[in-house]
Design a protein around this nucleic acid. Structure first.
Length: 555
DNA sequence: CGGATTTGACCAGCGC
DNA sequence: GCGCTGGTCAAATCCG
């Protein structure tokens, strides 16, 4: 009988593989269509820019405001290109833009151009840049102004630039208008809430703890980490247990990586980047007076990832808001906005109670925001996302503790099975003992007894990461997604998980109840990680140092 | 012994 | 100006 069971399992596995293959084929087709559409739109946009430039020359300066608005509107309709159009745009800029575009189109045929190729061999542009001047991060602004615009993304000088970043002193070199825009938006932060018993999320990066504080209103200490992958990396993160539910780990990221990241780190980086872009995009919009109320839609702009190589992901937060090519936007209705906080924070809440949603929402401590908009990226048959529904399974989601709260489509189920097959969940890297308050310590111990750490399993996640990088960075994808989201939101009620811009706790507006976005996590299959094969010691939220150094738990 | 962590001190921003 | 709070520094300590 054991033989019979084995055969059944084998057959089952084969059937699943077949399904996955078919799904993969469909996705490849979708991707190719997306790429094609994107390229068409890109050319369209450039034509618009060129026309605008022509009009500019033919018109008196008194009419500039009008036509700027016109172009903005058109660009917005396409991929929200207008957001990058600033008064600083000149013909030189436009020409440079076009030149950059063509160069990027050339580059997309190179294997070494970061994220250009996904497993399907489809070229997706990742070197996208924007004129967006309103990045919330001052540090980012400096980098962009000094290195991004005037040099390629691979410019080694970027590190040098970042080395001279004195925290909080970056406004000095900026134009006055930009400074004014940023006076109330000093540093964008992305907060990730996830159920995780490990000290930190396994975001793939290497961190060193440099401080710990008891923050007001939370008995659990807040730990401060800085990225140690590069000595000059300005990225910080704060890790703290949720006061209301200590199984929830709140990880807040701030800053931009200025160094190559391992694949396992790009997942989180891309996710936070997208969220930060969303936040910043909203912020800039808000600054323009388009969104002012605390219940206005969040303007969300997914990130334009770029890199110096297959594993280079420079933007964890706002940097990607300052690219030379346009970024797209989409809107999440009924989202809360706070404009009076110097540290606007967007919270990606991965603690949604439903196992079928990946959500962005307010902390559970704010029950009035508990419903909401969930992003449920599906590779399957959702009619609303037929042509652009591939997303990643980030490594940090691979945390089994959190896994129960996500739906990766077919991937998750496969992965969970595999995880279980190889020994259970990975809740902790086991490297460091917890030194949090006793009540939490006991909680952790109990949790760990029930869930022994398993071996790692990265193959799916890295592939998904790669696919995500390719896709989410694609403005066309974003645009199409935006359109889909817009229509879908209009037709959907609230679900679990949400996109929320916290900027501290916003007022008690109840407007967050109704939005609903369901984007199912997609799938991708090719396992790759040629550069950091030994970096992932655990698939859980344990933060494994990919340089064989310990990353830091919350002690 | 070198690197990471701990933890009290220090500093800056903010509200009163 | 003072106190509170968040964030960082750095010497002491821990650990592999």
């Amino acid at each position: 009988m054991p033989m019979q069971e084995a055969d059944d399992e084998l057959e089952l596995a084969k059937a699943e593989m077949g399904e996955v293959r078919e799904e993969n084929k469909r996705l490849k087709v979708l991707l190719s269509q997306i790429v094609k559409d994107y390229q068409e739109l890109q050319m369209h946009f450039l034509d618009v820019i060129q026309k605008e430039e022509t009009n500019k020359k033919s018109m008196d300066t008194s009419s500039t405001a009008d036509h700027q608005g016109t172009v903005s509107a058109e660009a917005d309709e396409l991929v929200s290109l207008s957001l990058g159009r600033t008064s600083s745009s000149t013909s030189t800029h436009d020409h440079q833009l076009r030149k950059d575009h063509h160069e990027m189109m050339k580059k997309t045929s190179r294997d070494d151009y970061y994220g250009v190729m996904n497993e399907a061999g489809l070229a997706l542009e990742l070197g996208c840049r924007s004129f967006e001047p309103a990045a919330a991060d001052h540090e980012t602004m400096k980098v962009n102004s000094s290195s991004e615009i005037n040099s390629s993304a691979a410019d080694p000088k970027e590190d040098e630039v970042t080395k001279i970043w004195p925290p909080g002193k970056m406004l000095k070199t900026r134009d006055d208008d930009v400074s004014q825009q940023q006076t109330h938006l000093k540093k964008a932060r992305v907060s990730v809430r996830a159920r995780c018993d490990a000290p930190t999320l396994n975001d793939g990066c290497q961190w060193r703890k440099y401080g710990q504080k008891i923050a007001k209103g939370n008995p659990c200490p807040r730990a401060y980490y800085r990225c140690t992958v590069s000595p000059s990396c300005p990225v910080r993160k704060q890790v703290q247990r949720c006061a209301e539910d200590m199984s929830i780990l709140i990880t807040t990221y701030e800053g931009n990586h200025n160094h190559p990241l391992p694949m396992s780190a790009t997942a989180m980086a891309s996710t936070t980047s997208a969220a930060a872009s969303m936040l910043q995009s909203h912020s800039s919009t808000s600054q323009q007076g388009l969104v002012n109320s605390t219940t206005a839609p969040i303007s969300t702009s997914t990130s334009n990832l770029h890199g110096h190589g297959p594993n280079y992901f420079t933007n964890s937060l706002s940097q990607n808001s300052s690219r030379l090519l346009p970024q797209s936007q989409f809107y999440f209705p009924n989202s809360s906005i706070s404009t009076n906080n110097s540290h606007p924070t967007i919270t990606l809440d991965l603690t949604a109670p439903s196992p079928s949603h990946f959500g962005l929402r307010f902390p559970s401590g704010l029950p009035r925001y508990s419903s909401s908009t969930s992003l449920n990226f599906s590779s399957s048959s959702s009619s609303s996302f037929d042509h652009n529904t591939l997303l990643q399974t980030p490594n940090w989601i691979n945390n089994p503790a959190a896994a129960g709260y996500f739906n990766y489509g077919t991937v998750l189920s496969h992965q969970n099975r595999m995880n279980q097959a190889v020994g259970g969940s990975s809740l902790n890297n086991g490297k460091q003992p917890f030194q949090e308050p006793n009540f939490y310590q006991s909680y952790i111990k109990n949790s760990q007894k029930a869930a022994p750490a398993p071996p790692q399993h990265h193959l799916f996640t890295e592939t998904l990461t790669t696919a995500t990088k390719a896709i989410t960075s694609n403005p066309k994808f974003q645009s199409a997604l935006a359109a889909a989201l817009t229509s879908f939101v209009g037709a959907n009620g609230g679900t679990s998980g949400a996109v929320r811009e916290t900027s501290h706790i916003v007022n008690g507006s109840s407007s967050t109840e109704s939005s609903g976005l369901k984007l199912k996590w997609g799938e991708s299959l090719t396992p790759i990680n040629p550069i950091y094969p030994s970096t992932q010691k655990g698939i859980g939220c344990a933060s494994s140092g990919y340089l064989n150094k310990s990353s830091s738990p919350l002690n």
